[in-house]
């Protein structure tokens, strides 16, 4: 049983966990911004009429969705040096997370745009708006509201996925737990502590999603 559970050791390692937590937060934040950019670009390509842009975007999205992040991470980690890019593990990790989440975000944005009722688009077409005006004035403002909650869901997934970067020795939260587990043979202390930290992030983001849901729910039709 866990009769030897040592809170003292956890306290001793707290600065390490703190650093790991901070690293996890900022590398997730950067990766999420990167993923948004990748997602918007992919979605824009995917909404084109011609297959020239659509086909590569679709292929990319399918390839990412049908393979595990860990394999993608190793692909970049072991593969990039072969192409002459010797990058720090942290950069490889952020790249992998951005490229992976970007594919999912592209689908979220696309679903948001497609969720706008056809009649809305017809009404704006009938009033003589151009494609850009329609997107800017009618479709995107409504799609924005629909996409915020799933985007926050994707942010939660991304934070959890970032744990895999510990496997290529990025000094983030899970890595801190691994260090405690292996240095002092205290896996319970190490992994339960980081689990608690991840839950902190999870409930934080979840609360944010709830807030945004309520805020967005009232922003459109004030009744």
């Amino acid at each position: 049983m866990l009769e030897n559970f040592s809170f003292r050791t956890i306290v001793e390692y707290l600065p390490l966990f703190g650093q790991g937590l901070v690293t996890t937060v900022w590398l997730s934040a950067i990766s999420f911004v990167g993923a948004l950019l990748v997602g918007i670009a992919l979605c824009a390509m995917n909404l084109q009429r011609g297959w020239l842009f659509r086909a590569p975007a679709k292929a990319y999205i399918d390839a990412v969705r049908a393979t595990p992040l860990l394999a993608q991470l190793y692909f970049l980690y072991f593969g990039l040096p072969r192409l002459g890019f010797v990058l720090p593990e942290l950069v490889v990790g952020i790249l992998a997370l951005s490229l992976n989440s970007g594919a999912y975000i592209a689908e979220i944005i696309r679903a948001g745009i497609l969720s706008i009722p056809r009649g809305q688009v017809e009404a704006s077409v009938a009033s003589g708006m151009t494609y850009t005006q329609r997107m800017r004035l009618v479709v995107l403002p409504q799609a924005f509201k629909v996409t915020i909650p799933p985007l926050l869901g994707q942010a939660i997934v991304l934070v959890k996925d970032s744990a895999l970067l510990s496997l290529i020795s990025v000094a983030e939260l899970t890595r801190a737990g691994q260090l405690l587990a292996s240095d002092r043979f205290m896996p319970a202390e190490g992994f339960l502590t980081i689990a608690a930290f991840y839950l902190l992030l999870y409930y934080g983001l979840k609360a944010l999603a709830g807030l945004s849901g309520r805020w967005l729910g009232t922003a459109g039709a004030r009744t």
Binding site: M1, D161, A163, T174, G177, A188, A195, Y198, Y202, Y203
Partner: peptide, 23 residues
């Protein structure tokens, strides 16, 4: 469900693999 959804799967595996033996 929230506990499981809120933690990385890697951490869950480590917990099960390294901590269950202590029980």
């Amino acid at each position: 469900v929230d506990l499981i959804r809120g933690t990385p799967f890697l951490v869950q595996i480590f917990l099960i693999f390294f901590i269950l033996p202590e029980f």
